[in-house]
Structure formats: C-alpha cells, structure tokens
Design a protein around this nucleic acid. Structure first.
Lengths: 336, 336
DNA sequence: ATGAAAGCGCTAACAG
DNA sequence: CTGTTAGCGCTTTCAT
C-alpha cells in the first residue's frame, strides 16, 4: 500500500453500496433520514473505498466552504498567536477550518487578502486591521461574507467588533503609577492611524486627566510597534527638558525598546524610570527587569471573535451588530 | 454604494462584452490568444461589473486551487512565524495563497489537518511534523498532493525535505565551549521521538566525542520544548552528583528555562554555568543574560520549503526528491 | 481567433 | 425513506 489517498468519488461509493449518490450524501451529512441498513452499507463502502469527500465540489454546490480566514498584521508579533489559538479552539469544535494569513501591516495586502477570501468563498473573516477602515473593509467584502473586526468600532452598527477594553487596564496602570508617587507620566504610541495606539493614547490622556495630573507634549512620542520604535521614541522622551518619571507604552515591544533607551541613558528601572507595556505577550515575563504590563486577554479576544462570527453566520447579515469589549487588567512585575 | 461585492459571474461579463464565456476565461488567464480589441472590451466589462472570478468553481474545474498549507506544531513558538514569513514571500510572488494551520503538536490533529488539506485540494503542503513519521504523512496525503517536510529526512527518496544543518552549528557551539575551558557539557533534549531534539542530541554527542570529551548520562535530560520543560530538566541536571559546567539545549525556550533553573540553584551565568540554546528566536536577544544560541535560519528554511514545493509542483511526483540542509551558525551573546 | 458543449464532484430541488 | 434531475461557475475539450 503505497498510497493512502484513493480517488473514489461519491458515485463510486453509491455504486458500491447499491444506492444513489443522493442517499450517500444524506447518509454522510445527516440532512435527511436514511434507514439504518442503508447507512451501514454506505459506511462500509466509504471505509472500503477510503472515500474522502471533495470539499471543493461541496463548497461550490452548497455555497459554504466551512473555512474561516484570520487576517493579522504581523504573525511575528506574539500577540496574534494567542488570538489565533482562541479562534482555532472555538471554530474547529464547530467543524470549521480556521487558517491564518499575514499582511505585514501593508494596506494593499489587506485589500488583496480580503478580495481573495471573498473569491474563495470563505464562510467568515476575522481581521485585525492595521490600515483599512471598517467602512472600506465592509465595502471590499460586501454583505455576503461575515466579518468580525478586532479593534475599536467606528460607531456604525453594521459590523461586528471585538476589542480589549484598554481603558480599564490603562486606567489601572496610571492609578498604580500615581500610587507609587509618579506625577509626570509619558506615553509612547504607534504611528498615527495605525493599530491600537491612538485609542490607547486617548485612554491614557483620560486616565491622567482624571487624576489631575498634567501632561507635557514632550512626554508623548510615536514610533513603529517594534523594539527599535520604542528605543527611538523612548530616547526622545528621555531627552526632553524635564523627562517624566514613568512611561506607558502602546505595546510590549515598544516598552522593551523604551527599557533599552532608559538603560542607554544610564537610568535604573523602575527606580529612575518606571515603564509599563500593553499586551502581556510571552516575552514580557522573560525580559529583565520583568515587564509590568496590561494584559489584554488576547486568547479571550480570539474566542469572542469566533463566537461572534458563529452567531453572525447563524443570524444572517441583517441581525444587529455585536460590539464586545473584554476587560483588561494590570499585571505588576518589576518594571514599574 | 453600500456593497463593493457584486455577484457578477463570467456569463454576465461575456454577455456584457458580447463574447462567449470561453473567450472571457481565456482573456483573463492568457491561456489562449485573444484579439486586442476583444480583450479590451472584456477588461471594460470586468471593471464595470466588478467581476471577481469564483475561485472555488475554478478550483473544481481546473483541479488546482493555488493554495498552499503550512502546518506547524505550535504557532506560539516564535520559530514558526519566521518560517511562515519566508514561505509567504516566495509563494505570494507566484500567485499562491499560503495559509497557516496549527496542530498544537497533537498527532491526531496532524492527521486530521492533512486529510482536510487533501479533501480541499490544496496544491501543496509544507509541514513541520511533531508526531507523524514521513511514511505516514506520505500515506495520508498520497501522491497527488506535494509535501515538503521540515526536519530530518528518513532516508527515503520519495519526499522532499528541508532542514537546518544543526550539526555545523552545534559543533561550533561545543567547540566554543571547549575553547572557553569547559570539559563537562550537558544537553537538554525534547521528548523522545518528538521534534528536532533527537537529531540535535546526536549532533551534540558526535561533537563532544570528536573533541575527546566524556559525557555522563546524568548530564542528559529531556522535557517538553517549553520554558517549564527547561526549568525541570535543568534542575535535574544541576542536581546530579557532579554537574556539568555548561548545558546546551534543544531549543531556546528550554534554554531560558535552564537559565531559570541555574538562577534558582544560585549559579551565575555564564561564570558558574554556561548555557546555549537553539533557534535564535527573537526572545533570545531580550532575555537577561542575552542568550547565546544556534541560529537555524528559520526564514531561510521557509524560503527553501516554498521553492522546493514550487519545483515539485512543476516537476511532478516522479522527479527525484530534494533534500536541502541549510547552514546554521553560533550566535555568541552573554549566556556562554 | 472564437464558440458550443461537456463536465469537475457534489448537493438542492423536485419527485415519488 | 429513496431516486432523478438539474446546476453551483468555471475551464476544458472539440470544433470551426
């Protein structure tokens, strides 16, 4: 036996079992009652011929492929595997094939992938957009394919959104810094209009204002969501006329870069400068000092996305959109 | 305009352009000469109707889906995104849609995914098996779907393999430790029969023997490819009657766990105990002390896998199998 | 350079 | 409970 893959089709099974292809189809799908005797014959034939349904043909005929695309900006960012894990566990349980594609944060790649998913008749898309606005996503994908967007909603009620409720976690972080005696707190965000940085910066400003702390524009910097981005932005903040005593960052990689910048400036962490990240990726617990950060429950986001998508598939395109915000929490380690 | 997704089919385009669907198909695929005037008309109709070919139908008819599955054991392991990145760049350039699926290292999941890929008529599979042997993979997938396996080849010449040449890098690591004065070197591998640990342990034994160093069974331990696995295994080695002065590890996560174990035992790194990892994942440069490790060129492996797969697709199943070994190198940082 | 007809493998719609 | 017919949307013969 060299080859475990036979090329038997449903017609071969039907002939072998002495029934019609339709009956074989229904015996396998359970969509129509089939007598026990017939079902047994069919199961024997399926096993004997090693029949594997052609899922492409099934998809064309039934207009449902049982595939779900998860489109992420940077699979190297450890945040996404967590989301993917949650998505995976929920969807495989329901018989879907979830698969991951990677845009590298390029807007044109986001467009290309979305169009490709539609052309391939995926049953749903879960996406963390880096460059595309929800309206454009909806425009590209159309109404036939359900989309769940990870991130801040745009106010419209025509798309499902799932997000981490950064505000609670960031507020907790700022309060914690305040309790530690910090009165001047900086923030490093991502590039304008890209990713979660804008929203996190707003949450930060609100939290700071709520405590009656002042903010200085010199304490706010932006850069790519990378270690190097954090290094540059951190260095700029630390070079300001009166540097802050603490810095919050829009993600953990930026925070790790900011720690590099602090060390390069000869500052001790957290005694000279406290640093807090966002995301609580695996690395956060491995760096030195261990990173205090906001856990955004990435796996929970993945689970919520998958569940939202399944509900949307069940309810159809006209059902009211769901906007889910999952709580975040401060994880106190050593960097603050 | 609420919906960017039209439901125009090739028949609508043909009617709009005043030609047959056959001609539209050929105008788009370029598989048959079409007059310039006709092609222009068709392009206009395609644009006006916003025609998007149905790729499921195309796949059923042409028996080629232009999809490539990348099956990995643990997408959370930072090694895989690197591989995926290389795979992605090569395959998208050739018009394929590469997608990633995750088995969590469960043998049954590997089987299930492979069968699903065949049923979905993917044009190729790139896989890093954790539990399945090459023969079983070939058996499940059959001859129709090309497979490139990441890892040690099994001696047969019926499957394409791509691997990092661990031996050169591990040999360099052992020599380096020897140069530093180490004469007793331990090794932490993965579970028996799972992943690259077995082969790396063999390479280690050869390198140690080549330098005339003795090995002690107490200095060899095994555990899961995780930080906790490295912590446990490292603690066991350090608790042996005469602990080694250096430990090499089958991957970086194990090495980071071994560093935990060393610290827990009150040992300084690298002065009391030197530690070397394998893979050079991003974290390796972020931990403290920064991890000396063997870079296995994960992105290069991804590129080689994709190129091997494309050649296999072009050459057919009967062409001789390619076994590619990419060089690895020692990256000296602080832990050794 | 183009069209007509057939069919990829399956399931839905329509019968009994 | 089962079968017959039709057709998902496209590409491939085969014919001109």
């Amino acid at each position: 036996m060299i080859d475990g893959h036979s090329i038997a089709g449903i017609i071969d099974v039907a002939a072998d079992a002495g029934v019609s292809p339709t009956t074989v189809s229904h015996a396998l799908s359970g969509k129509r009652a089939v007598s026990a005797k017939t079902r047994l014959k069919i199961q024997e034939s399926v096993a004997r011929l090693n029949y594997q349904p052609n899922l492409v043909a099934r998809g064309l005929r039934s207009q449902r492929t049982h595939t779900i695309a998860l489109l992420v900006a940077d699979i190297s960012n450890p945040y996404y595997p967590e989301v993917a894990s949650g998505v995976h566990d929920v969807l495989t349980r329901d018989g879907y094939l979830p698969f991951v594609c990677n845009t590298n944060g390029v807007a044109e790649a986001e467009r290309t992938f979305l169009a490709e998913f539609v052309a391939r008749s995926v049953d749903g898309i879960i996406m963390h957009p880096m460059a595309l606005a929800p309206a454009e996503i909806r425009f590209i994908v159309g109404r036939r394919v359900p989309v769940v967007i990870i991130g801040e909603d745009d106010g419209s009620h025509s798309v499902d959104f799932v997000r981490s409720d950064d505000r609670t976690g960031i507020s907790a972080g700022v309060s914690y810094l305040h309790d530690q005696g910090h009165r001047s707190i900086g923030f490093i965000s991502g590039p304008v209009g890209i990713g979660p940085g804008d929203a996190r910066l707003i949450s930060f400003r609100l939290a700071v204002a709520a405590l009656g702390l002042r903010t200085d524009d010199e304490w706010i910097a932006r850069g790519p969501y990378t270690r190097d981005g954090g290094l540059d932005a951190g260095a700029r903040i630390l070079a300001s006329s009166t540097p802050p005593t603490a810095i919050m960052c829009a993600n953990d990689l930026i925070a790790i870069g900011a720690m590099d910048a602090a060390r390069a400036a000869g500052l001790a962490i957290p005694s000279d400068i406290a640093i807090i990240g966002c995301d609580n990726i695996g690395i956060a617990d491995l760096v030195s000092p261990r990173l205090t950060t906001i856990d955004n429950n990435a796996r929970g986001v993945g689970i919520a996305c998958a569940e939202t998508l399944l509900l949307r598939i069940a309810d159809g395109p006209d059902a009211v959109a769901r906007h889910t915000a999952l709580p975040t929490r401060l994880v106190i380690r050593q960097s603050a």
